[in-house]
Simulated scan of single mutants.
Amino acid sequence: MEQSKQTESVKNSTQPKKAVVLLSGGLDSTTVLAMAKAQGYACYAMSFNYGQRHQAELQAAKRIADVLGAEEHRIMTLNFGELGGSALTDTSIDVPEELSEGIPVTYVPARNTVFLSLALGWAEIIGAYDIFIGVNAIDYSGYPDCRPEFIEAFEKLANLATKVGVEGQSFKIQTPLKDMTKADIVHCGSELGVDYRMTVSCYQADSNGQACGVCDSCRLRTKGFADAGLDDATVYQ
């Protein structure tokens, strides 16, 4: 009996750590999935059909999860479109094609709070203590829920509001891209073998995933490849 327990303990100790990775299908989240895999995590990818303008990014997320070897890929269905208030979920609001001051209309109110909450629930169920999200505080659109202060606050909430936290374990919200430029991110992913042709970053991509080339996300992506000195294989409309 004692020998059986020791054998089971050794077996469990050799199993890789589990992580939930938020995967949009874009450049940043794909790089994060590749980074988590490279760190030895067994990755459980989570994407969201939240009423966004196009489904191309979800098709991209499916391909990426498969190619990068996610243990499982779940697509959760929400409907932020019922709330409106964002150019990404409300077709009556145009996606801006010029630089603007302040927080842009492509900001989706409470999106990362909701996404992280659902990832937290799944993490607790499957026994994962790490949640990866591709937020960035340098080359980004200025969304308030991408800031380090938000991530720190959510991590504290995660460890206060869960059975895992109450019983003495702890969750870590991993943000490996936080202090990286877009060029740094592209370099990192390229070194890990990421094929960025699979990814869709555009806020208004067509049904084939072709990018507009003029929205804020496209501008950041294009600049990232240019600054990195690498060819951008993005297909534009």
Rank of each mutant, 00 (worst) to 15 (best):
Met1Ala: 10
Glu2Arg: 12
Ser4Cys: 08
Lys5His: 15
Thr7Gly: 01
Thr7His: 10
Thr14Asn: 15
Ala19Trp: 05
Leu33Phe: 07
Leu33Pro: 04
Met35Trp: 05
Ala36Asn: 09
Lys37Cys: 08
Gln39Ile: 03
Gln39Cys: 03
Tyr41Phe: 15
Cys43Thr: 15
Tyr44His: 15
Ala45Trp: 04
Ala45Val: 11
Ser47Glu: 11
Ser47Val: 07
Phe48His: 01
Tyr50Cys: 02
Arg53Leu: 11
His54Trp: 02
Gln55His: 05
Gln55Cys: 04
Glu57Val: 04
Leu58Gln: 09
Gln59Val: 03
Ala60Asn: 10
Lys62Cys: 11
Asp66Arg: 14
Gly69Glu: 11
Arg74Lys: 15
Thr77Gly: 07
Thr77Tyr: 08
Leu78Asn: 13
Asn79Cys: 15
Gly84Asn: 12
Gly84Cys: 11
Ser86Arg: 08
Ser92Gly: 09
Glu97Val: 13
Ser100Phe: 03
Glu101Phe: 07
Thr113Gly: 07
Thr113Lys: 07
Val114Ala: 12
Leu116Ser: 07
Ser117Asp: 04
Gly121Asn: 04
Ala123His: 00
Gly127Ile: 01
Ala128Pro: 03
Ile131Ser: 04
Ala137Gly: 05
Asp139Ser: 13
Arg147Asp: 04
Glu149Arg: 00
Phe150Glu: 03
Ala153Met: 07
Glu155Leu: 02
Lys156Gly: 03
Lys156Glu: 10
Lys156Asp: 09
Leu157Asp: 08
Leu157Gln: 05
Asn159Gly: 05
Lys163Phe: 08
Val164Cys: 00
Glu167Ile: 02
Gly168Cys: 05
Gln169Thr: 00
Phe171Gly: 01
Lys172Ile: 12
Lys172Thr: 15
Ile173His: 00
Pro176Asp: 08
Pro176Phe: 06
Asp179Lys: 13
Asp184Ser: 11
Ile185Lys: 01
Val186Cys: 05
Val186Gln: 04
His187Ala: 08
Ser190Arg: 13
Gly193Val: 06
Val194Asp: 06
Val194Lys: 03
Val194Ile: 14
Val194Pro: 01
Tyr196Gln: 10
Tyr196Lys: 13
Arg197Glu: 15
Thr199Gly: 10
Val200Phe: 10
Cys202Trp: 06
Tyr203Trp: 01
Ala205Asn: 12
Gly209Ala: 14
Cys212Asp: 10
Gly213Arg: 03
Gly213Asn: 01
Asp216Val: 05
Asp216Ile: 07
Thr222Ser: 11
Lys223Trp: 05
Gly224Thr: 09
Asp227Val: 09
Ala228Asp: 07
Gly229Met: 10
Asp232Gly: 05
Ala233Gln: 08
Thr234His: 04
Gln237Pro: 06
